[in-house]
Design a protein around this nucleic acid. Structure first.
Lengths: 139, 139
DNA sequence: GATATTTTATTAGCCAGCTAATCAAAGCAT
DNA sequence: ATGCTTTGATTAGCTGGCTAATAAAATATC
């Protein structure tokens, strides 16, 4: 098996290209890739702590912390007191943070369409089935 | 379609997890992820210019330049004169750079095995077929 | 030949991830 | 109550990508 045909090689290439696509499209609306994923979580569950975001997004607390900086600067989220633990704060959406939801979700649909433009419905379904099976013991 | 089930979302998650796996495994042998991809190209074609690496790896010249710094520091490659153009240099493998090939390729096989451990042969073949079809107009 | 444009490499600086180290709060132990 | 350990947030600094701006060489144009 030549290296270029391993799943790992193809995944690495597709992954970086895809990330670039996300960044490009996100930039059009003044956001960054990582910020979008945080927003996804907060739209599902507002008021999470950083440690919660960290575990739900499978990224380190350090990365969460840095990413939140941008969202705070843009006034999309605010920190609020966490009742039972003075170490943590709740990360809460602002009105602006709730308002951009529709916009970002529509952007995401665009991104997905662009990424999967070369696939049939069946192929797309296959990928949705197979991608979660990768790196089971890693995740 | 919920965002979490879009191909883009799944690809983003799999991509970052996979990249982390590569970095972890590469670190065991004193390398970094990006450096391995440069080595792959040089093992195929030694003496490429940075611009050639850039186009073959689909990364910017700036990224190539930075990545080569690490390989030069580790004495895996050297810069040599490029005959017909004083702007460029040939990036050439050292003996050490050639010697690590077997080792790195074996590591890559390990990485691929680890990434695809949860897949059947058929599923793996399907992924090899589908991943290159993603983002056709982007790449 | 002189000038303007393109190409290659390089640098600075950004965000997304990471690790390692720190610090404060919380929990648990004795 | 004292002290140890764990947990959550933060900071510094690294690589992997990127863009934008330079500088130098090559090329094209006049």
């Amino acid at each position: 098996m030549e290296i270029e045909n391993t799943v790992s090689y193809l995944l690495a290439k597709a992954g970086t290209a895809h990330r670039k696509l996300i960044e490009e499209r996100a930039r059009d609306i003044g956001l960054h890739g990582g910020q979008i994923f945080v927003l996804f979580e907060l739209w599902k569950t507002d008021g999470l702590r950083q440690i919660d975001l960290s575990s739900r997004l499978s990224i380190t607390p350090a990365t969460v912390n840095k990413t939140l900086g941008g969202l705070l600067d843009k006034d999309l989220v605010v920190r609020e007191k966490f009742e039972n633990d003075a170490r943590s704060t709740r990360i809460c959406l602002t009105q602006k943070g709730r308002d951009v939801r529709e916009f970002v979700e529509s952007l995401w649909a665009d991104i997905d369409l662009q990424a999967t433009g070369g696939l049939t419905e069946a192929e797309e379904g296959m990928l949705r089935l197979l991608l979660p099976k990768l790196m089971i013991e890693v995740l």
